[in-house]
Simulated assay, not measured.
Amino acid sequence: MWFKNLIFYRFTQPFNTSVEDIEEKLREKRFRSCGSQDMSTYGWVPPLGKHGELLTHAGNGFIMLTARKEEKILPSSVIRDAVDERVEQIEQEQDRQVFSKEKKALKDDVLMELLPKAFTRCQNTFAYIDSAKGWLVVDASSFKKAEELTSCLRECLGSLPVINPPLKNMPSHAMTRWLAQEIPLPDKLIIGDECELREPGDEGGQVKVSKQELVGEEVEVHLQAGKQVSKMALVWNDALSFVLGDDLVIRKLKFTDSIQEQLDEVSAETAAEQFDADFSIMTLTLQQMLDELMDYLGGISEEALERTEVASFSVEIPEKETV
């Protein structure tokens, strides 16, 4: 359950949907396993796994959701070999050439035949809603994975007015100035031992530095040459370590020993109680960190939030037919 990466979205209007309403709407897309002809399925599962039945887990104003994706493992090389074999058979038996249109039809036939025999793999994606601070936080390192969850949630709720945080300044601007010591590093932050520097422009060179002191002559040479920080390892408040990217994605998130000490003070008797304690400590810690990180990076543009058209985040839900 402990998040390893963070992609976070800002609500453009207060999120007032109750936990009960969310629970009811998520049931419409409860996860089901792949059928014989399904390439993949996507839906909601209980955050507590086998220890719970509800599709939501609420505590301290936070609401946790878990999406599961199951997909068939069917390598393209396997399909290609099967199609080639059939093409060769037809050409030999019927003494004619098989053209692209027929090959496409053969490929569809092969796919339908192989799907029921294919292995499957499952992957869960965790997320939580912080309605008090206006955050939707997804445990993902790629926007594609995060957007699968937000799209499914939007479809269930009918509307999900969230956007990537519109910062007043680019994250790379602040990180570069911190590393170049042009501005003081915030009191709660410590620079780690990993960073990535890039030259401006799509074809600019890049330098990766790992497992060494970042504040020094070796890195300073690249900064003076005009490179900017695109990723940098940071430690926040001696509680979290992570790598912050200029895309505002937090990767390699780790909770330090100080968080473990808080957990050691919890006397949970059941798995559900332990999950609730973990969830509470994790979300409260991340809530404080995200708020402070936004300030460190220059703050969120409230004007940009106000300009966002909420209607663009709505999904029309067809009315159910009555019999």
Rank of each mutant, 00 (worst) to 15 (best):
M1A: 14
W2S: 02
W2C: 02
W2Q: 01
N5K: 08
L6A: 01
F8M: 06
F11Y: 06
Q13D: 03
Q13A: 11
P14F: 04
N16W: 07
E23K: 00
E24V: 07
E24W: 09
E24M: 12
E24G: 05
E24N: 13
K25C: 13
R32S: 09
G35I: 00
M39D: 08
T41M: 03
G43C: 06
W44R: 02
P46N: 06
P46V: 07
H51K: 12
G61V: 12
F62G: 05
I63K: 01
L65K: 07
R68V: 11
R68E: 08
I73K: 14
P75V: 09
S76Q: 12
V78W: 07
R80T: 13
A82R: 14
I90G: 01
E93N: 09
D95S: 09
K103E: 11
A105C: 15
V110D: 06
L111C: 00
L111F: 08
P116K: 05
F119T: 04
T125Y: 07
A127S: 09
A127C: 14
I129D: 03
S131D: 08
A132N: 13
L136P: 00
V137N: 00
D139N: 10
K145W: 05
A146F: 04
A146S: 11
L149R: 03
E155A: 15
L157A: 03
L157D: 09
I163Y: 05
N164K: 15
L167D: 11
S172P: 00
S172W: 06
M175A: 02
T176E: 02
P184L: 00
L185T: 08
L189W: 03
I190G: 03
I191T: 09
R198H: 14
P200L: 13
G201T: 07
G201C: 10
D202M: 10
V207P: 05
K211Y: 11
Q212P: 09
L214Q: 06
G216P: 00
E218Q: 14
V219I: 15
V219C: 01
A225C: 09
V229Q: 03
D238F: 08
V243T: 15
L248C: 09
L248Q: 08
V249L: 10
I250W: 01
S258A: 15
Q260W: 08
D264Y: 00
E265D: 11
A271K: 14
F279M: 07
I281E: 01
I281D: 04
I281M: 06
T285L: 08
Q288C: 06
Q288F: 04
Q288S: 12
D295S: 11
D295K: 02
G299E: 06
E303F: 03
A304I: 04
A311M: 11
S312R: 10
V315W: 14
V315A: 04
V315S: 14
E316I: 12
E316M: 12
I317S: 11
E319S: 15
T322E: 13
